[in-house]
């Protein structure tokens, strides 16, 4: 590996990759929880594959974070729930199938858009490889949301309203336009947050065109730029349950680990 590839990323880039990695970690968890609860076996099989893909991607993102000086034990097994920087919608386990589909669809797509914006050489090939996985995740979500928008439009719209603010906070504040996005300024990404927000919403407007589902509007004060936590890419101090953190860290299975 070249010396350049070993160079330090700016702190904002480390936080950005940490938030993507933790979002994928929680996606893996939520796909796992729903693995046997989908409406049919085919959804369960797809969901199980999605979960495995996410965990594989997390492993690579953690590897890069470790090279950037982030402690491996902290990443994997030694964290408080409030130290996870996952997209806020993934804090909770969705109680119904349409809610779950909206939750993972928005989170997985947003995480992909943030990843795909990275232009740093440490990600060469890796993001392309992740894209091979993500095609099937996003296609599954969109195909499912198309049918749900016809069968259960109210449930889909309610879930969109519930999760949109948290997802916009994960993508970032509207004030991060072309000249103001610190990651673009640092040459770490090549697509400003404000542009990603627009593209993200536009995707769902197109997907739900002709259905009874309305996609929430983009408002510049969601998230409130003054309240926004750059490290955890959200507003407020919500977090996953301790029980979920224990599962992510393998607390109850630790006695079976072969060192």
């Amino acid at each position: 590996m070249s010396a350049d590839a070993e160079s330090r990323w700016p702190a904002v880039a480390r936080d950005y990759v940490q938030a993507i990695a933790d979002t994928k970690l929680l996606l893996g968890q939520r796909y796992g929880e729903w693995m046997l609860k989908g409406p049919n076996l085919e959804d369960d099989i797809s969901g199980a594959s999605n979960g495995q893909d996410e965990i594989g991607q997390v492993r690579q993102l953690f590897r890069l974070l470790e090279k950037q000086g982030v402690d491996r034990d902290w990443l994997e097994t030694d964290r408080e729930p409030a130290e996870y920087a996952n997209a806020q919608p993934l804090d909770e386990e969705a109680e119904a199938w349409p809610t779950f589909m909206v939750q993972v669809a928005l989170s997985d797509r947003a995480a992909w858009l943030l990843l795909d914006a990275i232009r740093h050489e440490d990600f060469t090939g890796m993001v392309q490889k992740m894209g091979e996985d993500e095609y099937f995740h996003l296609e599954h979500h969109d195909a499912r949301l198309e049918t749900l928008a016809v069968d259960q439009p109210e449930a889909v719209e309610a879930a969109l309203e519930r999760y949109f603010p948290g997802i916009l906070a994960f993508i970032g504040p509207a004030t991060y336009g072309a000249g103001e996005d610190p990651l673009v300024e640092a040459d770490f990404t090549d697509r400003a947050v404000a542009e990603i927000r627009g593209a993200f919403r536009e995707h769902y407007v197109d997907l739900f065109a002709g259905t009874d589902v309305t996609v929430p509007a983009l408002t510049d004060d969601v998230p409130d730029p003054d309240e926004w936590d750059e490290k955890r890419r959200r507003s407020g101090d919500g977090h996953i349950d301790q029980r979920v953190a224990d599962q992510l860290q393998g607390v109850t299975n630790r006695e079976y680990v072969i060192e």
Partner: peptide
């Protein structure tokens, strides 16, 4: 795909 595409 963006800049992080490896050589084809």
């Amino acid at each position: 795909m963006s800049a992080n595409t490896a050589g084809t």
